[in-house]
């Protein structure tokens, strides 16, 4: 019998993605402990990581980090394949799609705060759509839209500031 050894050699990119995904997962798990008045209303702190990775390493890596975060955090929180997981996945995919467009805006004018706001609105937009089509098939869910929109502005702004501050620190350090 011959021993076959499969050797995987992680590249620098792999390590970087893993490191950022780990940070994003930690933030998601930490924020799950914060009590909030409405189900589905979350600060989305992990998106800070997504924004930083997007700005520094590009969209592909941001997509890896964001989706790894969705899968791994849902496994950790026991949410995998539960409705919350699909809302989270839908939100992540929608905001990645929007970010692909938003990052092409002239960077002299639009920074991480804009990206964060766009992503936050894509997030709640996709989640409301999933909720309307699948979880609560009634137009009543749209009554939540202004509340979720307000949360998207506040948290989008805060996360955007955090990402911008982190990026500036990095720029000064390196």
């Amino acid at each position: 019998m011959t021993h076959s050894v499969i050797e995987l050699t992680p590249t620098d990119t792999d390590r970087r993605i893993a490191r950022h995904a780990a940070a994003a997962i930690a933030l998601t798990v930490a924020e799950a402990a914060i009590p909030l008045p409405l189900p589905g209303l979350k600060p989305g702190l992990a998106n800070i990581i997504t924004l930083v990775v997007l700005a520094r390493w590009g969209w592909r890596e941001a997509a890896w980090v964001s989706l790894l975060r969705v899968f791994a955090a849902s496994l950790l929180l026991g949410q995998f394949l539960a409705p919350g997981f699909f809302l989270s996945l839908g939100g992540a995919l929608a905001s990645l799609a929007v970010l692909a467009g938003a990052m092409r805006l002239p960077s002299r004018w639009f920074g991480p705060v804009s990206h964060s706001l766009f992503a936050a609105f894509a997030h709640i937009g996709a989640q409301l759509l999933i909720a309307r089509l699948w979880l609560t098939p009634h137009d009543g869910v749209f009554y939540l839209a202004p509340i979720l929109g307000g949360a998207a502005v506040v948290f989008g702004l805060v996360n955007g500031f955090a990402a911008a501050a982190l990026l500036r620190e990095k720029a000064h350090a390196g």
Binding site: L105, F110, S114
Partner: peptide
């Protein structure tokens, strides 16, 4: 931390 377009957004 804000750029001009960010205010508009």
């Amino acid at each position: 931390l804000l750029r001009p377009g960010d205010y508009i957004v």
